[in-house]
Design a protein around this nucleic acid. Structure first.
Lengths: 229, 229
DNA sequence: CCACTAAATGAATGCCGTTCATTTAGACTA
DNA sequence: TAGTCTAAATGAACGGCATTCATTTAGTGG
C-alpha cells in the first residue's frame, strides 16, 4: 500500500506502530522527504509551469509511475512542498517581542515565503491542518503568542484566519505586473481612479505591493490589538 | 485576425475604428459575449473541473477550434468570465450610504461573488485593468467613494488593494471544509491552538468564515477611516 | 460573377496525470 | 541454502487536455 498524505485516514490501520510483517527490499530510492526536496528544487529552477510529475521523476532518475508508490497524486506533492515551505515562516518573534511587533514580523515573513509560491495558495487555503504538521506547528506558535498577549480565546482563530486571508491575497500582489493599474485608453471615463493611480505613482519609489501590505497590516494589528484583555 | 483580450495590444493597429476592408460572412455563430455567457453557464453546471474548451464548444454546437477565432486562449475566456462577474459586485452603496457602510457592503458583495469562483482569483489578482473594463468601472466607483469621503488621493489605491487582498483571501475560506482546523491526533502537542479552536466551536452556529471576515473587515474599515481628512 | 475574407472545420500534435500488469531484489523463515 | 513474501521500480498504455493548421464554407462588396 503506498504512502499517502490524503485527508482520510486508513480505516484498516489498527494501531499507530507500523508493523513489519515480512522482509523488506533494500534501500528504497525514493521517500517523501526526497520527493519534497526534489520538488522544491525543480520548482525553483523551472517554476510551476515546468513542475510536472515526469520532470520530477527525471530529476530523481526514476520512472514517473514510481512516484505513485510514495505519493497518491500531484496534489499530494504540492501539499508536501507547502508544508515544508511553512517551516521557513519565522514565528520566533512571538517569543522575543511584544505582540504587535511579533504579528508584523510573522506576517511579513509569511507573505514573503508564499509570494514566491502563489500556485500553492489555493491548496494551502483549504487544506485541513491534519495533513500539514509543520503548518500546524506554526499555528500553535502563533496561537500561543496571541494567548500570552491576553487575547480572548474565542477570538484567536478568527483573528488568525483574517490575517492569513490578508496575507494570501497580498502574496498575489507581489507578483502582479507594475503597470497593472494603467487604465490606458479608458482613462477619461475613470477620472477618480486614474487620478488616484497617478498620485500614488508620484509618491516614492517604494514597492506598491509593500505599501498596501503595510497599510492593511497596520490596520489589522491596531484593530485586533484592541481586543486584548 | 481573431479577436483577443490579450494584455499586449496589437502594434499593427493604426486606429481605434475597426476598418472593414471587404465583405463579411453572414451571421457569425460565435462572439465574445456568447462565449462568456456559455462559459458562465457551463461553470455553473459543471464547475471548474468540467470547464474545458471542448465542453464549452459542445454547448455552443461548434468545434473546439472555432473558439480560437474569437479568443486566444482558455485564459482569455476566464478573463472574460471574471470581468462579467465583476459587474455583479454591488457598488451602489457608495452613492447612498456613508463611507464605512458603503465599504462594508461592497466588500461583502465582492467576497460573495468570488467565493463561488475561487479558481478565477489567481487570474484576477494579477490582471491589468486594461483587459477588464467592467472591473475598471468598479474601481472607478470605489475610488470616487473614497475621494468623496475625504481620503487623501495618494492613499486611495493602496487602501483598495489592501481591502481587495483581504477579500480574495477570505473568498477561499468560504469554500474550506468545516473541519479544516481539527488537529486530530496531534492535539496534545498543540494545546494552545486546539483550545482556541474548541472555544471558537463553543460559540454560536455562525459560519466560521463569516466571523473572521467580519472581524477583519471591521478592523480595516476602522483603521482606514482614520486616514480621512 | 468574381474576389475577398471572417469564420468553422476536423485532423493532428504534444503534453499531461495516472493506472496497471509485470519485474526486480532484498529480507525473513524453515 | 532454498523458498516465500513484499515494497518498490518499470514501461507501456490510456484518456483527456489546450492548441495549431491546412482546408473548406458561405456571405459581401465591387
Amino acid at each position: 500500500m503506498p504512502a499517502s498524505t490524503s485527508a482520510t485516514a486508513d480505516p484498516h490501520r489498527h494501531d499507530a506502530k507500523p508493523r513489519r510483517r515480512a522482509g523488506r527490499p533494500a534501500a528504497a530510492v525514493l521517500d517523501q522527504d526526497g520527493i519534497t526536496a526534489a520538488a522544491l528544487q525543480l520548482i525553483g529552477k523551472s517554476g510551476y509551469e515546468g513542475f510536472t510529475m515526469a520532470a520530477l521523476a527525471r530529476t530523481l532518475n526514476v520512472a514517473p509511475s514510481a512516484l505513485y508508490n510514495h505519493v497518491s497524486s500531484k496534489r499530494d506533492v504540492l501539499v508536501l512542498v507547502q508544508d515544508h515551505l511553512t517551516s521557513f515562516v519565522d514565528v520566533s518573534a512571538f517569543d522575543a517581542e511584544p505582540w504587535d511587533r511579533a504579528v508584523r514580523s510573522w506576517a511579513w515573513s509569511y507573505r514573503d515565503v508564499f509570494s514566491k509560491h502563489t500556485p500553492l495558495i489555493p491548496v494551502i487555503a483549504v487544506l485541513p491542518v491534519t495533513d500539514a504538521p509543520k503548518t500546524l506547528a506554526m499555528y500553535e506558535a502563533v496561537s500561543a503568542g496571541f494567548r500570552r498577549a491576553g487575547f480572548p480565546q474565542e477570538r484567536i482563530i478568527s483573528a488568525i484566519v483574517a490575517l492569513e486571508s490578508f496575507i494570501f491575497g497580498s502574496a498575489y500582489d507581489v507578483t502582479a505586473p507594475s503597470d497593472i493599474f494603467d487604465s490606458g485608453s479608458m482613462a477619461e471615463s475613470t477620472p477618480n481612479f486614474t487620478a488616484a493611480v497617478a498620485r500614488l505613482a508620484d509618491q516614492g519609489y517604494e514597492n506598491q505591493a509593500d505599501v498596501a501590505f503595510e497599510l492593511g497590516l497596520g490596520a489589522l494589528v491596531t484593530g485586533f490589538g484592541a481586543l486584548r484583555g
